[in-house]
Nucleic acid binder design. Sequence first.
DNA 1: GCGCTGCGATGCCACCAACGAATGTCTGGC
DNA 2: GCCAGACATTCGTTGGTGGCATCGCAGCGC
Lengths: 317, 317
Amino acid sequence: MRCANVEVMQTEMLDVFREVARQRSITGAATTLRYTQSAVSRQIAALELAVGARLFDRLPRGVALTEEGRCLLEHATAILDRLALARRDVAAVHAGTAGRLRVGAFATADAALVPRALARFRATRPGVRLSLIEGVTGRLLAALLAGDADVVLVTTSADRPFDDPRFRVHHVLDEPVLLAVPQDHRLASASPVRLAALTDEAWIAGSASPEETLLGPSVRLGFRPRIDFVAAEWTAKLGFVAAGLGVTLVPALAARTAPADVRLLPLDPREVPPRTVLAATLPGRTLPPPVADFLTIVRDLAQGGSSPTGANSVRGC
Amino acid sequence: MRCANVEVMQTEMLDVFREVARQRSITGAATTLRYTQSAVSRQIAALELAVGARLFDRLPRGVALTEEGRCLLEHATAILDRLALARRDVAAVHAGTAGRLRVGAFATADAALVPRALARFRATRPGVRLSLIEGVTGRLLAALLAGDADVVLVTTSADRPFDDPRFRVHHVLDEPVLLAVPQDHRLASASPVRLAALTDEAWIAGSASPEETLLGPSVRLGFRPRIDFVAAEWTAKLGFVAAGLGVTLVPALAARTAPADVRLLPLDPREVPPRTVLAATLPGRTLPPPVADFLTIVRDLAQGGSSPTGANSVRGC
DNA sequence: GCGCTGCGATGCCACCAACGAATGTCTGGC
DNA sequence: GCCAGACATTCGTTGGTGGCATCGCAGCGC
């Protein structure tokens, strides 16, 4: 019975209102807007009903804004401008010339792979705001779920497939694991090294329980290392190695951070399977162009698409 | 044939969009907004068509904003907030609790009448921004026409009725004109003074041609003053009078600025008709509450509604 | 494994809100 | 005093929009 939207200010109303205010004429605005005079007249009447105040004084020649109309005009102009801005902004995001890309990655990926990828990304999409969070796999996946990241780079061992349905995974690269030994180690010139030759070595690992470290896959294959030192940071582990206190495993991505007095030796991939680097996104979501681009760039770089990373230089051995 | 407003973002669309984004559910938003699920679904589809991008990813349980949707949400929120602000603002202006009042007035009105009126006005409508422009009648009326003032106070002599159809006039007060004489003048105790007694006086006037001054009406009635000194400012004229160099006419509103050694004498209103003070607004416009209030207050003050002005104290003589 | 359930999309229909055309009304000007 | 210009109003029509019902799809539980 009664009009439902008697109180609604539609954007078209505001547009008509603005034009009438500009021209100080209902008939003129109607002509400009390709409406009939009656249509504009009724639009203004409806808007006046909606705001509960007369917006124009009707003069013998045209109309004049009332104080209420002048007040509304400021707001209407701002609203219509913002609406136009919203159009342009959404279009820019859609085209990939604006927006944001929030990447999450593990520490060694941030050494070279991610910054190079982001640099190349920025060159092609300079309007996209970039941000990065670093952390371990669990934190990264939580951030992705929480909506705090658009794509995260995580690692997993090949013997533990990543099949959580809450994530969509994109393969990035299979990263060989290297053995770090002191420069004068007895195996420093052996290639490749077999695990059987390392049973009596003093190991340096990130945790006292080797299951959770890079040694995990090999442990599950039957290898039993003797862990003498526990250190979390790569620089610390490599420092111990350089001092001749033991050996450790190093992912290829961290190879470039190794000091000169440490030798990195390839291992048999059947005994020490490569670590898989994955990108994870949320399933069911359309990949925004920035994310898709970033994935392409990261994969390209991982395959040696540009100046080789430490991983690639060693993989060639 | 084709939809005319396929590209329009209506405010209701944005409202629905915001609610869907908040609840991450089309069905939920429909329930909250008292719509059916199909209506909301189509609203979102129409909005996506309007902006040319998918705003939500449809998930098995609800929906999730895309990057474009997140972008639009910021704008939509701002727009809807501004729309609500516009409603409140216009309502406040309509109620007279907000807005502005731009008064124009001639110099002597600004001595006491206008500031007192504005002070009383502010007490009742503290939210209204006040502004004042001062000038002579011509400038004030021009400002009114140009939309730079809402109401202007001007003076006119009773023998020159103000009948310009471009203005709507509101009578404020009839202001008697007083004769200023030195304290020891021969007429200092006469009351009222007849013009016939002033034919030989040395006159001080605002212009060499008395037609344009306060003497104008009397001149048109046959009086021929001898103008010895020309000075524009009231303080200057009264200074000449105090020095015994002549006599001059003073409007009652300026009486309070007279120094103590000058006597102000009443004149016969038939020979020196009172000056009329008018308020002018634009015709055909609804008087905003602030303007109507201001007019009421000014009239009230002019009739001695509060502490008497200089005019009133003299009028009583 | 199969059916159920929950959610969004869509076809169909009805309604009314808004448009266009024509007319009415008022004011100012010649 | 009639005309012209501008806004308001009335009337008939139509397209946009919501409701109803249904479909498709995916996850979950028995």
